[in-house]
Design a binder for these strands. Structure first.
Length: 504
RNA sequence: GAUCUCGUAGCUCAGCUGGUUAGAGCAUUUGACUUUUAAUCAAAGGGUCAUGGGUUCGAAUCCCAUCGAGAUCACCA
């Protein structure tokens, strides 16, 4: 234990000797908070003679018989003024001299009652008349200081510590708190946008006997009572479609999915996707729907359709640019791949220096060419439509073009932020597609889909024409909050276990 | 999984072409101070230099291994 931790533990004992309970049970109902005081206080028009607020003590400047300190609540910080003879009107000055000056530490939760005033330098400050310790801190908080020029000193910046001890990060780095508030607001806007159109928010299984609806490696687990293998879902698509079969017009779910794959600043083993399915619509309707929803998200978060991301400005103002996949490839490589067979595509990919291997089929080759040459250049939100059928086993065949499906992705800041289809509802075609996937699996592609008989049975009972979309919530949150790592938009990103935390 | 970079006090960092007792600021402790705001002034304490091994008269510093993190790549959303 460090000297500072030992000192704090000793302070605990001394507080109890003085009759001050460091962890009182009684409620401390507040009447206001730091932001409200700063917004509403006016010495002439709106004096505040009797306020009660609480928070963490974040800095203390003792000047003999008077002190200034700052407390931080959920809304921010506010300065307090503590005068010895006011909090100790009697002979006994212990509360000020011992408790406040010596036994309180930065980080401790305190509650204060007092009146608001303006200091000589014009800062809105709470003149404390009574002070209560609400919870004692034993672990020292990093002290982050901001000087008059707004320069931050001694920032708590080590990424490992910030992610492992997010609670500290949140206390000490206000912009982190804001990022997560924005993320939450983003989800709320989407939820309200969909709910107000009558779509139903639902929950579907995370533990699945078969993993389907996407191409990925799953986490595997075991249920003891049933003595069976279960998988953590890689997608919820097939369950949401079963609900459309069941007669709902629109269903959506904000779903945690799990994929047992590499980690990077764009990948966390568990991540959040919002999927929506709407009966009697197609993917072209969904383009308009998504565009409008995300434009509203941007406006709700930033008051504008423009969002600053790194050194770029991304504008979500409708309408967004729309390319077919072949158009996008032609735009960025100059090569028209329309009508090419597998050998021609392989040759083209080599000429364009696209990394390929022998297991890749036609669809995957096209996807690689797009991913290498077009996707990195798409910064503004852009719809890419008309994907090859081979890489979209759950999408309906294109109404006009042989070999393509009715599908779009939205690429923004060089990353996919949505994927949507006119859903395949022909059970016989769906069975064939699954079988083609099984064939691909035999060819060596480890990420082909497994055949889900119950899902096929549900389609045989009949699914109406349906539009579906999946939205990567973490990726969208990264853009909307100008974060360059997924770890900055997930409270507790996955980490290897920390050694020796117990022995500390 | 591969490559590169990093790990020194509670926090942020210096020291790294090997060489007295490993330094600084903030934080902590003691003292002074009744309107300060990165408060100030005076003094003090605080370190298995990530872990283990090696080279050397001598290692925070060089080498190897391990653990943890970040970046890039591969797989993917």
């Amino acid at each position: 234990m460090s000297d500072q931790e030992i000192v704090r533990r000793e302070a605990l004992g001394k507080l109890r000797e003085l009759g001050v309970e460091p962890y009182p049970a009684a409620a401390f109902p507040v009447t206001t908070n730091s932001a409200e005081i700063k917004a509403e206080f006016d010495p002439e028009k709106h004096p505040m003679e009797d306020v009660v607020l609480a928070g963490r003590l974040m800095s203390v400047r003792v000047m003999g018989k008077a002190s200034f300190a700052e407390i931080q609540d959920s809304q921010g910080r506010i300065q307090i003024y503590v005068n010895r003879d006011e909090i100790c009107p009697e002979e006994d000055k212990t509360l000020y001299n011992e408790v406040f000056k010596k036994l309180l530490d930065i980080g401790d939760f305190i509650g204060v009652k007092g009146r608001v005033f303006l200091t000589r330098t014009g800062e809105i400050t709470v003149h404390v008349v009574s002070l209560t310790l609400l919870s004692k801190t034993l672990h020292p908080l990093p002290i982050v200081k901001v000087d008059a020029e707004g320069q931050v000193h001694d920032a708590f910046s080590d990424p490992e510590q910030r992610y492992r001890q997010r609670y500290v990060d949140l206390v000490v780095n206000p912009e982190v708190r804001n990022t997560f508030i924005q993320r939450s607001k983003m989800i709320r806007v989407m939820r309200e946008f969909m709910s107000s159109r009558g779509y139903l928010e639902v929950e579907t299984p995370i533990l699945q006997p078969l993993y389907g609806g996407a191409l990925a490696k799953p986490f595997k687990t075991h249920h003891n009572t049933l003595d069976m293998t279960l998988f953590l879902r890689i997608a919820n698509e097939l369950y949401l479609k079963r609900l459309i079969v069941g007669g709902f017009d629109g269903v959506f779910e904000f779903a945690k999915n799990f994929r047992n794959e590499g980690m990077s600043r764009f990948h966390n083993p568990e991540f959040t996707v919002m999927e929506l399915y709407v009966a009697y619509q197609d993917c072209f309707w969904m383009m308009d729907f998504y565009e409008e929803m995300i434009e509203q998200v941007a406006i709700a978060l930033h008051g504008s359709t423009e969002v600053k991301v790194g050194d770029k400005v991304i504008d979500f103002k409708r309408p967004w640019k729309r390319y077919t996949m072949f158009e996008a490839i032609q735009e960025y490589t100059g090569v028209d791949i329309t009508g090419m067979n597998e050998d021609e595509l392989r040759k083209t990919a080599r000429e364009l220096h696209v990394p390929i291997d022998e297991t890749m089929g036609k669809g995957k080759l096209i996807d690689e060419i797009f991913g290498t040459h077009a996707e990195p250049k798409l910064i503004q939100p852009t719809f890419i439509t008309d994907y090859p059928v081979e890489m979209s086993p759950l999408a309906k065949k294109h109404r006009d073009h042989e070999g393509l499906v009715e599908r779009f992705e939205v690429v923004c800041n060089a990353k996919e932020i949505a994927n949507a289809f006119t859903e395949l509802n022909d059970p016989i075609d769906q069975r064939q597609r699954f079988e083609e996937q099984l064939a691909l699996g035999k060819r060596g592609d480890t990420e082909s889909m497994v055949l889900d008989e119950d899902f096929l049975r549900s389609l045989e009972y009949g699914m109406p024409p349906t539009a579906g979309i999946g939205v990567g919530i973490d990726r969208l949150a990264m853009i909307m909050t100008n974060s360059d790592s997924i770890q900055d938009v997930i409270f507790f990103p996955q980490m290897r276990p920390e050694k020796n935390i117990a022995s500390e």
